[in-house]
């Protein structure tokens, strides 16, 4: 028996919205400790890693580990039928399920929707993501980071991110010209202005803005985002989801020819 009930179903809707342009199909692994998912985009440039802890669910039961192979597009179609205030319950009784049941219930418990989504058997290629002590960690407003990426992507396809003890600089060079946006360490009380820099070693890496813009679809999951960088390492962009877990995106940097 597997059953997971989310009090705020809208969070699940937002997660699926955030990853649906990046990955087409995923294996969600359910275990006693919660749900996890890892998937790469078709070009293998970016990787999505989702972890949802059992404690974050209103009800959670998973008697034995199961793998749920899902088409994100089809999952998204079903989740469109859930209201933003609904609870969402995922359920299956089978040991090797061929479908996953969904229950959506509104706050008054006056409307209950039930769907079943056919599952797929997917070859999963799980990569060992090393635990990394990142040499530059930037925590800032997710909306502000999203705005910077969007603005710069009209000038160039790539952005160079360079950290120093005091600031982080986003630089672009394009056909029309060049520019940069520098964000300084700022211990403001207001979330939108606050920028926390933890720089053990400065780094300078270049990334494709197209992917960063896709990651930023997760902006509604968290008011802050953390950018974790080390030389010769993929950028890790993390959105923490309250008590539930985290959605992480990894992006391989541009490398020398």
């Amino acid at each position: 028996m597997f059953e997971a009930k989310l009090q705020q179903g809208v969070i699940f809707k937002k997660i699926v919205d955030a990853i649906k342009d990046l990955v087409k199909s995923v294996n969600i692994d359910a275990s006693t400790s919660g749900l996890s998912m890892q998937a790469m985009d078709s070009a293998h440039v970016a990787l999505v890693s989702l972890k949802l802890n059992e404690n974050g669910f209103k009800d959670y039961r998973c008697d034995r580990p199961i793998t749920l192979g899902l088409s994100i597009e089809n999952l998204s179609k079903i989740l469109k039928c859930a209201g933003n205030d609904d609870t969402i319950t995922l359920q299956t009784d089978e040991e090797e399920p061929s479908s996953l049941k969904f229950f959506f219930e509104n706050q008054q418990a006056s409307k209950i929707s039930e769907f079943s989504l056919n599952l797929m058997s997917l070859d999963s290629e799980s990569l060992g993501i090393p635990d990394t002590d990142y040499s530059s960690v930037i925590q800032m407003s997710s909306a502000e980071f999203s705005r910077i990426c969007k603005e710069l992507s009209s000038i160039s396809e790539t952005v160079e991110i360079e950290t120093s003890k005091e600031s982080v600089k986003f630089s672009v060079q394009g056909d029309i010209g060049a520019g940069s946006i520098t964000v300084k360490n700022n211990q403001s009380d207001k979330d939108v202005d606050r920028v926390d820099l933890q720089i053990d070693q400065p780094v300078k890496l270049t990334f494709a803005l197209r992917y960063l813009n896709m990651f930023n679809k997760a902006v509604s999951l968290s008011s802050t985002v953390s950018l974790n960088m080390s030389e010769e390492n993929p950028l890790m962009v993390e959105y923490k989801i309250d008590d539930l877990g985290s959605l992480r995106f990894y992006l391989a940097p541009k490398i020398s020819d």
Binding site: L127, T206, A208, P234, A252, K254, I255
Partner: peptide, 13 residues
């Protein structure tokens, strides 16, 4: 510069 891939950095587990 060329685009790196995740596999350039993370190995198979």
């Amino acid at each position: 510069m060329k685009q790196g891939t995740i596999k350039n950095f993370f190995g198979n587990s």
